[in-house]
Design a protein around this nucleic acid. Structure first.
Length: 681
DNA sequence: GGCCCGTTGTG
DNA sequence: ACAACGGGC
């Protein structure tokens, strides 16, 4: 079968040698060339952030040294076009087969399919495998054979599938190296000079690489796992598994995690250890959410940029540069929120609990467009993960059938006493509040003047007053929601009458540009009690800020019909996006020129429009804040077809029709039907 | 001990 | 929206 030539193993986010089905299969087939292709421009707006690139760099070095000890090495290529880079490698090595493991983000779904087509056409055997999930998304269906639309059902099904998840594979004992002598390595640059200082700090806290991931897993299972349930309320992340960045880059197999944790559960169950049993269930649930994020991405490839329940596109977001900046800088006046944002800023890490706190505050109190928040997370999190983050933000934003209720505002003061009862977390990250007694630590605005004075706090000066009052936020939210439902109803009525397609869809919605990045200005820093170290971090952590003149706009809905017909253009690659090699690369810039949709298959259907459309600016009662519909943060890919709206629109029963976006599009659906293309074996 | 009601947790 | 929980009566 190997037909003479060697095999290419194409590494992506499966940077491990253990339980790596593609690697194992390739090794079985004979000589192997392992390759990693760095083509971040293809990711468009989702160019990885600084800390994420730092991790990747370390992880690749680790993988390379593992491969070397097994008899080969990691061939690295720098490219702006993954497919052609793959082709080059195939030609230079005389390979006859390509092996890789599946990914489920929308870009990869298309790119990987394209790789199969192109390489197969060249006579190369292409095989792909599941290495990232317990079960492939297309294998998990409800009783009617439809994809689940809520997590609980999905996870229940996963836990009761007829076959257990595959047992993890051992690492190969030895790898016969293919001949890559005519294919030199490119040096991959993941950080620039300005980033090195901050990145150096990361190495103190984190050890990327598959064998370190394995250690982290063992440490967690033998330690914090037992009390996972008890500790889940703490703001402190000391008791979390710390596995998320490892999992993101595939340094540890989720199936291995699952099996080891399950074994522990059986053990504890036999001992009658209730707490341990519950802890395992809870931990597995978070593994399940990760699975579910891939599941959603597969079934709804637009979920990272479009609300799954259509009504949210009518929500009048508050467009306020100041709010956004205050949130990023941790200067909202709510200590728990601010502490979280400072921690994120300084370390790239946040306990899941606190992620919920800050994102919920972002969406419900500040009412900023959720995709801005998601993008900021993407840029700053060490474990930035498109699918997981999209799921998280949609959950917070109330756009999943099983979301949090949008109209319930979480109270950061109460959450503060719940997650950080002694104020230790706040004091660690907000040095300016460190002398405030616990009684007031989560609501300094109520503290008596004498107390504030004794603590050296002058509200509005060295620590802000609440940027928005909770009562005001609540009133504003109710107003906005009722406006949203009104618009939604009007739009629906218009559609039903056939009077107009998508009223309020493209005609009324002026998507909000994703903010451009600029460096944090010096005077914004909080100099008090910061040592040189910390200040350095602050300087290095670039944050976006907004311009209102550049806007992204949805594709005109006219295009929807026609593209749905040929069924191909709806899933894009972003190769056309000019990607500046920015200093910090925190935020790719919005290109200044309009790109209109091309009809080439698989080509970016990104409609970017520069407009100086400012006319919808309204002043609201509270401040001179603008509201606009649809947070047009992200490059809007070619339209998700008319059926997009149908797919999740709530019917009379309040249940979203679960018909998959992909089902309506045979060709696309085929694209992703990996099973017919290859299977492990 | 039951019952009412506000709070909390829901993925 | 709804169920489970808990404090007060």
């Amino acid at each position: 079968m190997s037909g003479g030539g060697c095999s290419i193993v194409w590494f992506r986010r499966d940077l491990r040698v253990e339980d790596n089905p593609a690697l194992t299969a390739a090794v079985r087939a004979g000589a192997v060339v392992a390759v990693f292709i760095w083509a971040p421009e293809e990711e468009g707006h989702y160019y990885p952030g600084r800390v994420s690139r730092w991790w990747l760099k370390q992880s690749l070095a680790h993988l390379d040294s593992s491969l070397r000890s097994l008899g080969t090495f990691l061939l690295t290529k720098r490219s702006t076009n993954t497919i052609s880079a793959l082709l080059d490698v195939v030609k230079a090595t005389g390979a006859s087969q390509l092996f890789f493991n599946h990914l489920y983000d929308p870009l990869s779904l298309i790119r990987d399919h394209q790789a199969k087509e192109v390489l197969s056409a060249q006579g190369i055997g292409v095989r792909s495998y599941n290495a990232d999930l317990l079960y492939e998304p297309w294998d998990v269906k409800d009783a009617n054979g439809n994809p689940f639309t809520t997590f609980a059902g999905f996870w229940e099904r996963c836990l009761s599938m007829p076959c257990d998840p595959e047992a993890p594979l051992l690492p190969p004992k030895r790898i016969i190296s293919g001949d890559a002598s005519r294919c030199p390595c490119d040096t991959l640059v993941f950080e620039d000079e300005s980033e090195k200082g901050s990145n150096a700090l990361l190495a103190r806290a984190w050890a990327p690489g598959w064998s370190n991931a394995d250690k982290a897993l063992t440490t967690f299972i033998n330690g914090p796992l037992l009390e996972y349930s008890k500790n889940r309320r703490k703001a402190d992340s000391a008791t979390t598994s710390f596995l998320s960045p490892h999992l993101h880059f595939g340094e540890v197999s989720v199936r291995k995690v699952f099996h080891l944790v399950r074994m522990k559960q059986v053990l504890w169950a036999n001992e009658g250890n209730k707490a341990g049993d519950e802890s395992v269930n809870l931990f597995l649930k978070s593994i399940g959410l990760r699975e579910y994020s891939r599941y959603m991405s597969f079934n709804h490839p637009y979920s990272h940029e479009r609300p799954l329940l259509g009504h949210l596109k009518f929500f009048p977001w508050v467009v306020d540069e100041g709010y956004f900046k205050a949130w990023r800088q941790g200067r909202t006046g709510y200590p728990l929120v601010d502490a979280g944002m400072r921690e994120l800023w300084a370390t790239g890490w946040l306990h899941d609990r606190i992620r919920v706190v800050v994102s919920s505050f972002f969406v419900k109190v500040l009412q900023l467009p959720w995709r801005w928040g998601m993008k900021y997370f993407w840029d700053t999190l060490l474990d930035a993960d498109l699918e997981s983050d999209a799921l998280g933000w949609q959950y917070i934003s109330g756009t999943l059938p099983d979301s949090r209720e949008f109209d319930r505002i979480d109270n950061p003061q109460l959450e503060g006493y719940k997650f950080d009862p002694n104020g230790e977390y706040v004091r660690r990250w907000l040095p300016e509040l460190s002398r405030l007694p616990t009684e007031w630590i989560h609501h300094p605005w109520n503290a008596p003047e004498s107390v504030l004075q004794a603590a050296g706090i002058e509200l509005g000066s060295n620590y802000p007053l609440p940027i928005v009052g909770l009562d005001a936020a609540k009133a504003r939210l109710e107003e906005a929601l009722s406006e949203m439902w009104q618009q939604e109803a009007a739009s629906r009525a218009a559609i039903e009458n056939g009077t107009e397609e998508g009223l309020g869809d493209s005609s009324e919605s002026i998507p909000i540009a994703f903010p451009q990045d600029i460096a944090m200005e010096e005077e914004d820093l909080e100099p008090a009690r910061m040592n040189a170290h910390t200040i350095r971090c602050y300087e290095d952590q670039m944050v976006p800020s907004m311009t209102s003149s550049v806007r992204l706009e949805d594709e005109p809905s006219l295009n929807i019909q026609s593209t749905a017909e040929d069924g191909r253009a709806e899933v894009p690659t972003n190769t056309n996006l000019p990607q500046e090699p920015t200093r910090d690369a925190v935020n790719p810039r919005v290109p200044p020129t309009a790109l209109t949709q091309t009809r080439r298959p698989y080509t970016a259907g990104i409609a970017l429009r520069t407009s100086v459309e400012d006319s919808t600016a309204e002043s609201s009662s509270s401040s001179d804040v603008r509201r606009e519909r649809d947070g047009g943060v992200v490059p809007v890919w070619s339209p998700p077809s008319s059926s997009y709206t149908e797919q999740f629109v709530v019917d009379e029963n309040g249940i979203g029709t679960s018909s998959s976006f992909l089902q309506g599009h045979q060709q696309t659906h085929q694209i992703i039907n990996w099973r017919r293309l290859s299977q492990t074996g």
